[in-house]
Amino acid sequence: MFSILCVLSAVVAACLANTSPPQPVTVAPGCVVNGVTYKAGERFQKSPCSPCYCSADGHINCAIVDCFFTPCVDAIHDPTKCCPVCPNGENCKHKDGTIIKKGEVYNPDAHTSCKCPTSFHFGPSLAVCAVDTINVG
């Protein structure tokens, strides 16, 4: 039994003598998000409304985009963009449902002219109308 231990000790000693000490593994600084590695300093987006930055210490810093109101009544949500967009430009709506482009005049009848307000506010924008009382019969 003693001779087997001596042989095993000799084999282990020989193996240890022939191996170099383990080398430290260096990992480049970066961030991993959903299995994707980003380099330190690299910018990326987790979603259209969340731009992010990989810091030098490997932390992920993200902002949350807050959308301003849309200056139209027919805004759509484009999944590639964060905030709603106005496909037909700035506009407003008359009470009869007609959409009026900013800068244009809508005449729902012979005596009424309607246009978009000069400044938009939060919520749907309704047209401002004026009735011509001088020429009303």
Rank of each mutant, 00 (worst) to 15 (best):
F122I: 13
V11K: 04
V32D: 11
P84M: 04
C83S: 01
Y106P: 00
Y53V: 06
I60N: 03
R43T: 13
K81R: 14
P108I: 01
D96P: 01
G58A: 07
S20A: 12
T112N: 04
K115V: 11
V33F: 14
V73F: 02
K81I: 07
V25E: 10
L5D: 07
S119P: 03
Q23V: 11
L8G: 10
C31M: 05
I134Q: 12
A28S: 13
D57V: 09
G30H: 05
T37P: 02
T19Q: 11
E42A: 09
P48Y: 08
P108E: 02
C6P: 00
N135Y: 06
Y106G: 01
C82E: 04
A17C: 08
S55P: 02
V12D: 05
K39M: 14
V32R: 09
L8K: 06
V136F: 11
V32K: 08
A127R: 00
N91G: 05
A110M: 12
S119A: 14
K102P: 00
I100F: 00
A110V: 10
C31V: 09
N91W: 04
Q23W: 01
V32H: 02
I76R: 08
V12C: 10
V36Y: 00
S113I: 08
S119R: 15
K46W: 00
C129W: 03
N61Y: 09
H94Y: 07
P79W: 09
V33P: 04
V65N: 07
L8Y: 07
A40M: 07
V27K: 14
V105H: 06
R43F: 08
H94A: 10
G41E: 04
A63M: 15
S55I: 05
G103F: 00
V36T: 09
N135A: 09
A110R: 13
I4W: 07
G103I: 02
D96F: 01
N34T: 08
K81P: 01
N61S: 12
P21Y: 07
T98D: 01
N88F: 08
V33Q: 12
S20I: 09
N34E: 15
P29T: 06
V85H: 09
H121A: 12
I76P: 00
N61F: 08
V128E: 14
K102T: 13
C49Q: 02
E90S: 13
K95I: 15
T133Q: 13
V33D: 15
Q45T: 13
D66A: 09
S50V: 11
P22N: 03
T98W: 00
F68N: 14
P21L: 05
V65W: 03
V12F: 10
